[in-house]
């Protein structure tokens, strides 16, 4: 199996371990990831905040590249995933602006968007029957019952009609199921898809500190020993903005946990975290983690 791969800006920088663990997991399962040649930034929150044209044109640039490559597009970043899905919905609605954008893209890139590119988030992909088949027998329940809070954040499930691949976007389950297969105990908790504040962390850190405090307190209340995310902004905010007196909870990427359960060497990824998760894993009997 072969997939096109769109890491996005964060995965080349602040969330390098999300990219490294995603690539390692898929490679281990025999899936070839071909990074999209010359991908551009999706525009993220700033794009749609200040410039409607760019909020569609930037993801469209990448959708057109993906269509030319011909494979499904794997996207680990929840924000990139959401931008791509929103651009697809915008194009599918077929407004005058969408038609004009497509004509302009044709002139600029030499190719129109035809609506064929399939965008898959990492969780969506791992929950796919084909991938479940590849994981069968390979995932080991190495986490020995470790209670983990699966944190989905905003952009994987909202707006539901545009973005969600979950049966119930208010109660997403796919990450919980993956964690259970790795031997963890996913906790039932209240803040699964509450917002962390995302990019407000830079202009308004005090807002993010407050939102993170509530999310972490909820995870703790439910008995979780760590939080698991599938978004580079959620991970960065939760990993860097816990300031309460108690010991901070480690914050994993889902692909790091899958990598551990596949027996891959997770140390280079885990070393990048601000809250070091290695002592917790060692306590849990994972001696290979150093």
């Amino acid at each position: 199996m072969k997939l096109s791969y769109y890491p996005g800006c964060s995965l080349h920088s602040t969330a390098a371990e999300f990219s490294a663990s995603t690539e390692a997991v898929f490679r281990h399962l025999g899936v070839e990831l071909q990074e999209l040649e010359d991908w551009c930034c999706c525009g993220a929150t700033s794009g749609h905040s200040l410039n409607s044209y760019l909020s569609h044109a930037l993801p469209l640039h990448n959708l057109i590249l993906a269509e030319a490559a011909g494979e499904d597009l794997l996207v680990p970043c929840a924000a990139c995933y959401n931008s791509l899905k929103a651009a697809q919905a915008f194009m599918a609605a077929g407004s005058q602006e969408a038609l004009e954008l497509n004509e302009w893209a044709d002139q600029a890139l030499g190719r129109q968007y035809q609506g064929g590119a399939k965008v898959r988030h990492v969780i969506d992909m791992l929950a796919d029957p084909t991938m479940q088949g590849l994981l069968e027998g390979r995932l080991k329940p190495v986490l020995n019952g470790l209670p983990l809070a699966a944190y989905y954040g905003c952009l994987l499930t909202r707006p539901p009609k545009v973005a969600s691949f979950e049966a119930n976007p208010e109660q997403p389950q796919l990450m919980d199921r993956l964690l259970a297969r790795c031997g963890a105990t996913p906790v039932a908790w209240s803040h699964k898809n509450e917002c962390c504040g995302a990019s407000l962390a830079i202009p308004q850190p005090q807002v993010v500190v407050e939102l993170v405090r509530k999310i972490v307190a909820a995870a703790r209340r439910a008995g979780a020993k760590a939080i698991v995310t599938a978004c580079p902004l959620c991970q960065t905010n939760l990993d860097s903005r816990q300031v309460n007196g108690e010991e901070a909870l480690p914050v994993f990427f889902i692909t790091e946990i899958i990598g551990l359960a596949l027996g891959l060497n997770a140390t280079p990824w885990l070393k990048k975290h601000l809250v070091d998760p290695r002592p917790l894993l060692q306590q849990q009997g994972l001696r290979a983690v150093s």
Partner: peptide, 18 residues
């Protein structure tokens, strides 16, 4: 990006369009 011209052309569309 390697092909920055094509990216800039797309960016420009904002002004060129309607």
């Amino acid at each position: 990006l390697k092909n920055r011209e094509r990216f800039r052309a797309l960016w420009q569309g904002e002004k060129e369009g309607q």
